[in-house]
Every structure is written in C-alpha cells, then in structure tokens.
Computed example of a mutant assay.
Amino acid sequence: MSKVITTEEIPALFKDNMTIMAGGFMGVGTPERLVAGILESGVKDLTLICNDTAFVETGVGPLVVNKRFRKIIASHIGTNPETGRQMIAGETEVELVPQGTLAERVRAGGAGLGGVLTPTGVGTVVEEGKQKLAVDGREYLLETPLRADVAILKAYKADKAGNLVYHRSARNFNPLMALAADLVIVQVEKLVEIGEIDPDEVVTPGILVDKILVSGREL
C-alpha cells in the first residue's frame, strides 16, 4: 500500500484531544502544509510538543493563534507573543522545558526508556513537582519520557518506502520525533523511487514513516 497521501486526506488523520509532536526550530523544519491541514480539520483541545511556537504566521503559529491547543510543551515561546498571552490569560497551559531536556525526553519516549536524569533545573522552579535522585553525591531531576499520538515532520527528500533525507538545519527535532509517535506523517519537497537514495544519506528509516505528503516545492 502506498504511503503517499494528498492534502485532502490530511484532516481525517487528526482528532480532538490528540497529542501532536511537531518538528521545527523557529518554523524551519516545520511542515506548513500539514499545519494547514490540521487547521482545516477543525480539531481542538490538542496537546503540542515542540521546540518552540515559532511566529504568529509561521510554523505552528497559526494553530496557536486559532487556539487549537489545550497544552503546549516547549522550550521557547518568546517569538510568538500570542502563546505568551494565552499562557498569562490562562487560556492555554504551557509547560516550559529546557531545550536539551526536551530533546532527551523525546528520545527517551522513542527508545522506550522510563525517563532521563539531568542536573538541569536542580534548585530552580524547574524542579517543582519532580522526583530528585542522588547519584554519586550529585542531585538529578527525573524527567519523564514524551510520546505523541501523531508526529508531523518535514524532510527534504523521501523515497516511496519513506526513507528520509533532511536539509541542513531543518533536520533539528524531526528525526527524534519520528521515533516517539504512534503515527508519523512527513511533508517532503521531493519524492523518488526506492533505491534512488544512497543508504548513507538516510537519517530516518522508512519503517518509522506512515504517511508522506509531497509539497511539490524544492528548497
């Protein structure tokens, strides 16, 4: 069965109350057409896991502006004033996580681990409500793993099996999130036949990818 989907099929893949991981760093590496499909679907009360909420008009910003998220787990929200406004107003719950900790929590979710130990945040507000463990006389926070119902990713190129090649810094969180979701949907610029990608170039193996949307625009 082909993994390739059309834009018309995107809305049916999402439901209310889902947890969604979105790749990207300030919108770079975020699949804008998948974001548009989620917006079109009308789903709400979502939980978002992402590095940042980009800007009002880019990345996951349009979903924030349209109040589709019940909760956002991110390391940075400063570039999108609407995220901050909703947080202060109590309209959206925002959990701020140090960037390295966020990456490791996603990695732990993809690897099936029970969490990670990190000294980051010890002695600050970050430790509130978290378990602390001492290892060799040093205190660590136990940070729990993150997983999602759906990961929406962006890659530069895919073959029809779903093997992915990323474009420079647009790679960012995408490969980690491909491991940590039940359904993985990727938007790509180019689609090629199986065998046309050098195996050494593959970052995300096709076995992890469920759906492929071809955007038709090359970087």
Rank of each mutant, 00 (worst) to 15 (best):
M1S: 11
K3R: 14
I5D: 13
T7Y: 12
T7V: 13
E8A: 11
E9K: 15
A12D: 06
A12E: 01
A12K: 00
D16V: 06
M18R: 06
M18N: 10
T19F: 03
M21F: 13
A22S: 10
M26R: 08
G29W: 04
V35H: 11
A36G: 03
A36C: 03
G37Y: 12
G37E: 10
G37H: 09
E40F: 10
G42K: 00
V43K: 03
K44M: 02
D45E: 14
L46E: 01
L48Y: 04
N51T: 13
T53M: 14
A54Q: 07
F55I: 08
P62A: 11
L63M: 04
L63W: 03
N66V: 01
R68C: 10
R68M: 12
F69T: 03
K71A: 06
I72G: 13
S75H: 11
S75M: 14
I77V: 09
N80G: 08
P81C: 02
T83Y: 12
R85I: 06
R85S: 08
I88Q: 11
A89P: 04
G90T: 07
G90N: 04
V94N: 08
L96R: 10
V97P: 01
Q99V: 02
Q99H: 11
A103M: 05
V106N: 02
V106R: 00
A108H: 05
A108M: 09
G109C: 06
G110H: 00
G112Q: 00
G112V: 00
L113Y: 08
G114N: 03
G115M: 02
V116D: 08
V116Y: 12
P119A: 12
V122S: 02
V125C: 08
E127K: 15
E127Q: 15
K130N: 05
K132R: 14
K132F: 15
V135R: 08
D136Q: 08
G137T: 07
L142Y: 09
E143G: 11
T144P: 12
A148T: 13
A151L: 06
A151S: 12
I152P: 06
I152L: 09
L153G: 08
K154N: 04
Y156N: 10
K160W: 06
K160G: 05
K160E: 07
L164Q: 01
V165G: 13
V165N: 15
A170D: 10
A170R: 05
R171S: 10
F173G: 15
N174W: 04
N174F: 09
P175C: 07
P175H: 12
L176N: 06
L176W: 14
L179H: 15
A181F: 11
L183K: 14
V186F: 07
E189L: 13
K190G: 09
L191N: 12
D200S: 06
D200F: 03
E201K: 10
V203Y: 05
L208V: 01
D210P: 05
D210I: 03
K211C: 01
S215R: 12
